[in-house]
Amino acid sequence: MAFLEVKNLKKSFGSTKVLHGIDFSMEQGEVVAVIGASGGGKTTFLRCLNFLEIADEGTIEIDGGFSFNAEKKYTESEIREMILRMGLVFQSFNLFPQYTAFDNVFIPMKLRTVERHKKDKSFDLAAALEENRERARYLLCEVGLKDKMQNYPWQLSGGQQQRVAIARALAQNPDVLCFDEPTSALDPELTGEVLRVIKELKDKGCTMIVVTHEMEFARKVADRAIFFADGVIEEEGVPEKLFEHPTSPKTAAFLGHVNGSLNG
């Protein structure tokens, strides 16, 4: 079995069918870029992987992690266990405005530690929380925000906010980290710093799925690119190959359009 295996994933909203049966798998440490036209279901796919939407049909499995089957009913806490295995970075950052960069990373960790301690008093809470603090500081340094830990989100640029969001998502040590157009809300001059962080995460062995319109980035960083169209994976392959020699006319049309709009 692959590290992450998704089989026949389907999702509808009312009568709108959005995902028509996605089969997808990836290995640990792999970075997959997801491209596709607007409305193709990329966001919905990531939301299903992170259980913000519960798929109508299909399975999601992480080797040694969890196994989700849409036919089964899960309790809220079972879903939460699975959610914690996945990470999601949003297009719009969604930092908590009332907390500093440090607290944005630390508080979610703290809540989990406190919950764990309620069930199992055998470990030292204070020491565990100190470890959490240490981890929050470490992660913020990793994304290059050593000097911004005590700043509130409104005091940070978009690129800095997104890097806090990445540190926050990394804090729970997810098996797979998903990004939904992480640079689309940023001014062009700020996209570089976020993409650089993602590149560094790849070098550290982080397993990632990145929905992006940054073709250059996908080409350089992703091990594989998948092209989403109308709720199915239309085509996938090594980015170079997919971008240069698409076999599906839909892929070709999309790439032509993207390249066209880049050149024009």
Partner: peptide, 15 residues
């Protein structure tokens, strides 16, 4: 914004 609830949810917070 809905994103606040969703961010909390993916971080494993209860309601």
């Amino acid at each position: 914004p809905r994103g606040q609830y969703e961010a909390a949810q993916v971080l494993g917070m209860t309601k």
